[in-house]
């Protein structure tokens, strides 16, 4: 092995670089090259993939920035991310706090609850399409036989599609949130709660002053990673509504996918991708600064 003296007493070894090289090269080839490609394409008027576009300067950016549909899709994405995150957190918290008291239930929940998260989105879509379907779904049939509604609700494809999609996605993701929260809760020392009880603190005060601060070490995992992953979700929307009806569920990912593979505007969609990345980057930096656990 090639060993060179490095710093005082610390030997320089090439080995760690060789070990990490395959992964880093892989990521450079599959992420950084496409990123360069998308930046270059964003200045061209390429239409179909494989055709060559000409340089059009900033025209694509101008076109995207002035496109009401692009900003509308950001609005939808915002509703999507905020709606999903809030519901997931509430549901995840409820589950985590509910099962925490009982060791056996907690173990079962921790190991099995995650299942909705690991099944393919397309199957999640099929399951809920099958339950929610307007003409033969079991939900409508049940609500009608209970006389709660007089005619079937069009839950997927109707006006409230966004809400339905959020519900379905929360079903898909809240187990993940709950498992991470359970792990975070487990790191909070029991003595804190005991001494708070001695001091006469109630449930709510314990939650606000012990539980929430104690979870600060997972707010990064849930806050930054969770939000960006949620923003990125495409398949459940595409397979169930394709962004419709009337664009009510066209989030940014749908806007981009459609622009490239349905409207065949590669150049313009590349500009939209670059702009979206920049906005998300700013968001990520702010979030990382805000949620970073204090260095000890």
């Amino acid at each position: 092995m090639n060993l060179v003296k490095h710093k005082a007493g610390r030997r320089f070894s090439i080995l760690p670089y060789l070990l990490i090289a395959p992964l880093v090269l892989w990521l450079i080839l599959t992420i950084f090259i496409p990123v360069i490609n998308v930046i270059l394409e964003s200045f061209k008027n390429t239409t179909y993939v494989g055709t060559k576009g000409e340089n059009v300067g900033l025209a694509n950016y101008k076109s995207v920035l002035t496109d009401a549909a692009y900003w509308k899709s950001w609005g939808k994405s915002l509703i999507w991310v905020v709606g999903c995150t809030i519901l997931q957190t509430i549901l995840g918290f409820s589950v985590a706090l509910l099962v925490r008291g009982n060791k056996r239930i907690q173990k079962i929940a921790k190991n099995w609850m995650i299942i909705p998260w690991i099944i393919p989105t397309i199957v999640v879509g099929i399951m809920w399409q099958w339950i929610f379907n307007g003409s033969y779904g079991i939900l409508n049939k049940m609500l009608m036989s209970l006389n709660l509604i007089s005619k079937p609700l069009n839950l997927i494809g109707g006006k409230g599609s966004m809400l339905t999609l959020i519900f379905i996605n929360v079903w898909h993701w809240f187990p993940f949130t709950a498992v991470i929260l359970l792990a975070g809760l487990a790191t909070i020392p029991k003595e804190l709660y005991e001494s708070a009880s001695v001091d006469g603190a109630g449930g709510l005060r314990k939650f606000l002053h012990i539980t929430l601060p104690g979870l600060s070490n997972i707010t990064f995992a849930l806050g930054v990673v969770g939000t960006l992953w949620c923003f990125n979700i495409f398949d459940i929307i595409w397979t169930l509504t394709s962004g419709g009806p009337l664009d009510t569920t066209t989030t940014v990912p749908i806007y981009i996918y459609r622009g490239a593979f349905k409207s065949f505007k590669i150049g313009r969609t590349s500009a939209a991708s670059v702009l979206t990345s920049l906005i998300l980057l700013v968001f990520a930096i702010i979030m990382i600064r805000a949620t970073k656990p204090k260095e000890e």
Partner: peptide, 20 residues
């Protein structure tokens, strides 16, 4: 670098990955 990759929204890569 590795951290950035796993939070990078993959949807932003669909167009260029297809191109490449």
């Amino acid at each position: 670098i590795i951290l950035i990759t796993y939070i990078f929204p993959s949807i932003l890569l669909v167009v260029p990955v297809y191109n490449v």
